[in-house]
Protein backbone atom coordinates (compact mmCIF):
# COMPACT_ATOMS: atom_id res chain seq x y z
CA UNK A 1 0.00 0.00 0.00
CA UNK A 2 1.44 3.30 -1.03
CA UNK A 3 -0.47 5.17 1.71
CA UNK A 4 1.27 3.12 4.28
CA UNK A 5 4.62 3.98 2.81
CA UNK A 6 3.76 7.68 2.85
CA UNK A 7 2.77 7.53 6.45
CA UNK A 8 5.80 5.50 7.45
CA UNK A 9 7.98 8.06 5.79
CA UNK A 10 6.16 10.87 7.51
CA UNK A 11 6.48 9.11 10.83
CA UNK A 12 10.17 8.59 10.31
CA UNK A 13 10.47 12.29 9.63
CA UNK A 14 8.73 13.02 12.88
CA UNK A 15 10.86 10.60 14.81
CA UNK A 16 14.24 11.47 13.41
CA UNK A 17 13.86 14.42 11.11
CA UNK A 18 13.11 16.87 13.85
CA UNK A 19 16.55 16.56 15.42
CA UNK A 20 18.23 16.96 12.07
CA UNK A 21 16.11 19.97 11.44
CA UNK A 22 16.99 21.46 14.80
CA UNK A 23 20.70 20.98 14.14
CA UNK A 24 20.30 22.62 10.79
CA UNK A 25 18.72 25.61 12.37
CA UNK A 26 21.27 25.78 15.12
CA UNK A 27 23.90 25.88 12.42
CA UNK A 28 22.09 28.79 10.92
CA UNK A 29 22.01 30.29 14.37
CA UNK A 30 18.38 31.28 14.10
CA UNK A 31 15.03 29.86 15.07
CA UNK A 32 16.59 27.15 17.18
CA UNK A 33 14.71 28.22 20.26
CA UNK A 34 11.40 28.10 18.42
CA UNK A 35 12.22 24.59 17.27
CA UNK A 36 13.10 23.33 20.71
CA UNK A 37 9.93 24.92 22.03
CA UNK A 38 7.96 22.86 19.58
CA UNK A 39 9.88 19.76 20.49
CA UNK A 40 8.93 20.27 24.11
CA UNK A 41 5.27 20.44 23.14
CA UNK A 42 5.57 17.08 21.37
CA UNK A 43 7.36 15.53 24.33
CA UNK A 44 4.76 17.12 26.59
CA UNK A 45 2.02 15.22 24.74
CA UNK A 46 3.72 11.90 25.54
CA UNK A 47 4.06 12.88 29.19
CA UNK A 48 0.44 13.95 29.31
CA UNK A 49 -0.69 10.57 27.98
CA UNK A 50 1.24 8.89 30.78
CA UNK A 51 -0.08 11.31 33.38
CA UNK A 52 -3.66 10.93 32.15
CA UNK A 53 -3.36 7.17 32.68
CA UNK A 54 -1.46 7.33 35.95
CA UNK A 55 -2.81 5.17 38.75
CA UNK A 56 -2.04 8.03 41.13
CA UNK A 57 -4.91 10.09 39.75
CA UNK A 58 -8.33 10.08 41.35
CA UNK A 59 -10.76 7.74 39.58
CA UNK A 60 -14.14 8.99 38.39
CA UNK A 61 -16.04 7.59 41.39
CA UNK A 62 -13.76 9.62 43.68
CA UNK A 63 -14.82 12.79 41.90
CA UNK A 64 -18.46 11.72 42.14
CA UNK A 65 -18.24 10.89 45.85
CA UNK A 66 -16.49 14.16 46.65
CA UNK A 67 -18.55 16.46 44.45
CA UNK A 68 -22.04 14.98 44.66
CA UNK A 69 -23.69 14.89 48.07
CA UNK A 70 -25.46 11.65 48.89
CA UNK A 71 -24.50 10.12 45.56
CA UNK A 72 -26.75 7.16 44.96
CA UNK A 73 -25.57 4.71 42.32
CA UNK A 74 -28.16 3.14 40.05
CA UNK A 75 -27.66 -0.04 38.06
CA UNK A 76 -28.67 -1.77 34.87
CA UNK A 77 -29.69 -1.03 31.31
CA UNK A 78 -33.10 -2.79 31.64
CA UNK A 79 -32.24 -4.81 28.51
CA UNK A 80 -29.44 -7.17 29.24
CA UNK A 81 -27.15 -6.50 32.19
CA UNK A 82 -25.50 -4.12 34.59
CA UNK A 83 -22.18 -2.83 33.30
CA UNK A 84 -19.99 -1.62 36.13
CA UNK A 85 -17.66 0.19 33.74
CA UNK A 86 -20.25 2.97 33.62
CA UNK A 87 -21.04 4.53 36.99
CA UNK A 88 -24.29 6.42 37.05
CA UNK A 89 -26.84 7.68 39.49
CA UNK A 90 -28.45 10.61 41.22
CA UNK A 91 -27.55 13.01 43.99
CA UNK A 92 -27.32 16.63 44.99
CA UNK A 93 -24.76 18.98 43.54
CA UNK A 94 -24.61 22.00 45.86
CA UNK A 95 -28.24 21.37 46.72
CA UNK A 96 -29.31 20.92 43.10
CA UNK A 97 -30.64 17.48 42.11
CA UNK A 98 -28.47 16.07 39.32
CA UNK A 99 -27.85 12.87 37.39
CA UNK A 100 -24.25 11.79 37.04
CA UNK A 101 -22.63 9.33 34.65
CA UNK A 102 -19.00 8.44 34.14
CA UNK A 103 -16.51 5.77 33.28
CA UNK A 104 -15.39 3.50 36.09
CA UNK A 105 -11.90 2.09 35.73
CA UNK A 106 -11.79 0.55 39.17
CA UNK A 107 -9.52 1.14 42.15
CA UNK A 108 -7.89 -2.28 42.46
CA UNK A 109 -7.05 -5.05 40.05
CA UNK A 110 -10.19 -7.02 40.77
CA UNK A 111 -12.37 -4.01 40.11
CA UNK A 112 -10.22 -3.05 37.10
CA UNK A 113 -10.98 -6.41 35.54
CA UNK A 114 -14.69 -6.25 36.32
CA UNK A 115 -14.81 -2.81 34.70
CA UNK A 116 -12.50 -3.86 31.85
CA UNK A 117 -10.34 -0.85 32.83
CA UNK A 118 -13.12 1.57 32.02
CA UNK A 119 -14.06 0.16 28.62
CA UNK A 120 -17.86 -0.16 28.48
CA UNK A 121 -19.90 -2.79 26.75
CA UNK A 122 -23.10 -1.73 24.96
CA UNK A 123 -24.98 -2.19 28.27
CA UNK A 124 -22.93 0.62 29.79
CA UNK A 125 -23.99 3.06 27.10
CA UNK A 126 -27.59 1.88 27.27
CA UNK A 127 -27.57 2.42 31.01
CA UNK A 128 -26.26 5.94 30.43
CA UNK A 129 -29.04 6.55 27.88
CA UNK A 130 -31.60 5.34 30.39
CA UNK A 131 -30.25 7.62 33.10
CA UNK A 132 -30.06 10.62 30.76
CA UNK A 133 -33.68 10.17 29.70
CA UNK A 134 -34.62 9.87 33.35
CA UNK A 135 -32.75 13.09 34.06
CA UNK A 136 -34.72 14.77 31.29
CA UNK A 137 -37.99 13.52 32.71
CA UNK A 138 -37.25 15.01 36.12
CA UNK A 139 -35.52 18.14 34.82
CA UNK A 140 -32.17 17.28 36.36
CA UNK A 141 -28.93 18.51 34.79
CA UNK A 142 -26.44 15.80 33.79
CA UNK A 143 -22.82 15.85 34.90
CA UNK A 144 -20.67 13.42 32.93
CA UNK A 145 -17.14 12.28 33.72
CA UNK A 146 -14.88 10.80 31.06
CA UNK A 147 -11.99 8.46 31.77
CA UNK A 148 -11.82 5.63 29.24
CA UNK A 149 -9.39 4.18 26.72
CA UNK A 150 -12.43 3.58 24.48
CA UNK A 151 -15.37 1.23 24.08
CA UNK A 152 -14.56 -2.43 24.73
CA UNK A 153 -13.59 -4.18 21.49
CA UNK A 154 -14.96 -7.58 22.42
CA UNK A 155 -16.83 -10.23 20.50
CA UNK A 156 -19.93 -10.03 22.66
CA UNK A 157 -19.88 -6.23 22.57
CA UNK A 158 -20.17 -6.49 18.78
CA UNK A 159 -22.92 -9.09 19.01
CA UNK A 160 -24.92 -6.75 21.21
CA UNK A 161 -24.42 -3.69 18.99
CA UNK A 162 -21.56 -1.62 20.36
CA UNK A 163 -21.80 0.83 17.44
CA UNK A 164 -25.55 1.23 17.76
CA UNK A 165 -25.32 1.77 21.53
CA UNK A 166 -22.70 4.50 21.16
CA UNK A 167 -24.62 6.16 18.32
CA UNK A 168 -27.79 6.26 20.44
CA UNK A 169 -25.85 7.61 23.39
CA UNK A 170 -24.37 10.45 21.34
CA UNK A 171 -27.75 11.18 19.80
CA UNK A 172 -29.50 11.21 23.17
CA UNK A 173 -26.96 13.49 24.79
CA UNK A 174 -26.87 15.89 21.86
CA UNK A 175 -30.63 16.45 22.04
CA UNK A 176 -31.26 16.26 25.78
CA UNK A 177 -33.57 18.97 27.13
CA UNK A 178 -31.53 19.46 30.31
CA UNK A 179 -28.02 20.95 30.70
CA UNK A 180 -25.11 18.56 30.18
CA UNK A 181 -21.62 19.37 31.47
CA UNK A 182 -18.78 16.94 30.75
CA UNK A 183 -15.48 16.75 32.65
CA UNK A 184 -12.51 14.81 31.29
CA UNK A 185 -10.59 13.52 34.29
CA UNK A 186 -8.10 11.19 32.61
CA UNK A 187 -7.97 9.64 29.18
CA UNK A 188 -10.76 10.05 26.66
CA UNK A 189 -10.41 7.72 23.71
CA UNK A 190 -12.56 7.43 20.59
CA UNK A 191 -16.33 7.08 20.33
CA UNK A 192 -16.32 5.53 23.78
CA UNK A 193 -15.40 8.93 25.22
CA UNK A 194 -17.44 10.97 22.77
CA UNK A 195 -20.56 9.10 23.89
CA UNK A 196 -20.43 11.19 27.09
CA UNK A 197 -19.05 14.34 25.50
CA UNK A 198 -21.65 15.74 23.11
CA UNK A 199 -23.27 18.00 25.68
CA UNK A 200 -23.24 21.74 26.34
CA UNK A 201 -19.90 22.29 28.01
CA UNK A 202 -16.67 20.33 27.80
CA UNK A 203 -14.19 20.81 30.64
CA UNK A 204 -10.81 19.08 30.76
CA UNK A 205 -8.34 18.64 33.58
CA UNK A 206 -4.91 19.95 32.67
CA UNK A 207 -3.41 16.50 32.21
CA UNK A 208 -6.39 14.78 30.66
CA UNK A 209 -6.44 13.84 26.98
CA UNK A 210 -9.10 13.51 24.30
CA UNK A 211 -8.23 11.60 21.15
CA UNK A 212 -9.82 10.03 18.09
CA UNK A 213 -8.41 6.69 19.25
CA UNK A 214 -5.92 5.60 21.88
CA UNK A 215 -2.39 6.47 20.66
CA UNK A 216 -1.71 2.72 20.47
CA UNK A 217 -4.75 2.18 18.25
CA UNK A 218 -3.80 5.15 16.13
CA UNK A 219 -0.27 3.83 15.58
CA UNK A 220 -1.66 0.38 14.91
CA UNK A 221 -4.06 1.62 12.24
CA UNK A 222 -1.71 4.01 10.47
CA UNK A 223 1.62 2.29 10.93
CA UNK A 224 0.55 -1.27 11.80
CA UNK A 225 2.60 -1.04 14.95
CA UNK A 226 0.92 -0.20 18.24
CA UNK A 227 4.25 0.06 20.03
CA UNK A 228 4.88 3.36 18.23
CA UNK A 229 2.29 5.08 20.40
CA UNK A 230 4.68 7.81 21.49
CA UNK A 231 5.12 9.00 17.91
CA UNK A 232 1.35 8.91 17.57
CA UNK A 233 0.83 10.94 20.74
CA UNK A 234 3.18 13.59 19.38
CA UNK A 235 1.16 14.20 16.21
CA UNK A 236 -2.39 13.57 17.42
CA UNK A 237 -3.02 16.89 19.18
CA UNK A 238 -4.66 15.25 22.14
CA UNK A 239 -3.69 17.37 25.14
CA UNK A 240 -6.25 19.57 26.88
CA UNK A 241 -4.41 22.61 25.50
CA UNK A 242 -4.61 21.28 21.92
CA UNK A 243 -8.27 20.40 22.28
CA UNK A 244 -9.02 23.88 23.60
CA UNK A 245 -7.07 25.47 20.74
CA UNK A 246 -9.18 23.43 18.31
CA UNK A 247 -12.30 24.87 19.92
CA UNK A 248 -13.67 21.59 21.25
CA UNK A 249 -12.80 22.09 24.94
CA UNK A 250 -14.34 25.07 26.73
CA UNK A 251 -12.25 25.25 29.87
CA UNK A 252 -9.16 23.68 31.39
CA UNK A 253 -8.82 23.05 35.12
CA UNK A 254 -5.22 23.42 36.33
CA UNK A 255 -3.93 20.48 38.34
CA UNK A 256 -1.93 20.55 41.57
CA UNK A 257 0.79 17.99 42.38
CA UNK A 258 -0.46 14.40 41.94
CA UNK A 259 -0.74 13.71 45.68
CA UNK A 260 -2.75 16.89 46.21
CA UNK A 261 -5.32 15.73 43.69
CA UNK A 262 -6.95 13.57 46.35
CA UNK A 263 -7.48 16.53 48.67
CA UNK A 264 -10.79 18.25 49.25
CA UNK A 265 -9.38 21.54 47.97
CA UNK A 266 -8.87 20.12 44.50
CA UNK A 267 -12.32 18.53 44.35
CA UNK A 268 -13.74 21.91 45.38
CA UNK A 269 -11.97 23.54 42.45
CA UNK A 270 -13.47 20.97 40.08
CA UNK A 271 -16.91 21.49 41.64
CA UNK A 272 -16.54 25.28 41.34
CA UNK A 273 -15.72 24.96 37.66
CA UNK A 274 -18.70 22.70 36.98
CA UNK A 275 -20.94 25.06 38.93
CA UNK A 276 -19.70 28.07 37.00
CA UNK A 277 -20.35 26.32 33.68
CA UNK A 278 -23.71 24.98 34.74
CA UNK A 279 -25.05 28.34 35.93
CA UNK A 280 -25.73 30.02 32.57
CA UNK A 281 -27.21 26.78 31.20
CA UNK A 282 -29.77 26.59 34.00
CA UNK A 283 -31.29 29.90 33.00
CA UNK A 284 -31.96 28.76 29.43
CA UNK A 285 -35.30 27.23 28.52
CA UNK A 286 -35.42 23.78 26.89
CA UNK A 287 -35.69 25.00 23.33
CA UNK A 288 -32.85 27.47 23.72
CA UNK A 289 -30.65 24.86 25.34
CA UNK A 290 -31.09 22.30 22.57
CA UNK A 291 -30.80 24.89 19.84
CA UNK A 292 -27.60 26.39 21.25
CA UNK A 293 -26.07 22.96 21.64
CA UNK A 294 -26.91 22.18 18.03
CA UNK A 295 -25.42 25.45 16.84
CA UNK A 296 -22.24 24.73 18.78
CA UNK A 297 -21.94 21.32 17.10
CA UNK A 298 -22.83 22.83 13.75
CA UNK A 299 -19.70 24.94 13.96
CA UNK A 300 -17.39 22.23 15.25
CA UNK A 301 -14.99 21.11 12.60
CA UNK A 302 -16.47 23.18 9.85
CA UNK A 303 -13.63 25.06 8.28
CA UNK A 304 -16.02 27.83 7.43
CA UNK A 305 -16.74 28.34 11.13
CA UNK A 306 -20.30 29.39 10.45
CA UNK A 307 -22.78 31.09 12.81
Amino acid sequence: MSDEKDIRKAAAEIAFGEDLHAEEQEAKGAGASVRSGRKTAAQDAVEKVMKARSKERPVVTEYIDNIIEDAMYLAGDRCFAEDESVAGGIGLFRGLPVTFIGHRKGRDLEENIRCRFGMPNPEGYRKAIRLMKQAEKFGRPVIAFVDTPGAYPGKEAEERGQGQAIAECIKTMSRLCVPVVTVFTGEGGSGGALAFASGDRLIMLENSIFSILSPEGFASILWHDGSRWQEAAKVMKLTARDIKDLGVCDEIIPEPEPEEMHEKRFFDTVADTIWRNLGPLLSKDEGELVRDRYLKLRKTGSKYGRN
Partner: peptide, 10 residues
Protein backbone atom coordinates in the same frame (compact mmCIF):
# COMPACT_ATOMS: atom_id res chain seq x y z
CA UNK B 1 -7.71 13.75 14.78
CA UNK B 2 -10.29 14.99 17.22
CA UNK B 3 -12.09 17.03 14.56
CA UNK B 4 -12.92 13.81 12.73
CA UNK B 5 -14.22 12.31 15.97
CA UNK B 6 -16.44 15.34 16.53
CA UNK B 7 -18.11 14.65 13.18
CA UNK B 8 -19.77 11.69 14.87
CA UNK B 9 -21.50 14.10 17.24
CA UNK B 10 -22.40 16.50 14.43
Amino acid sequence: GIMALMQMAR
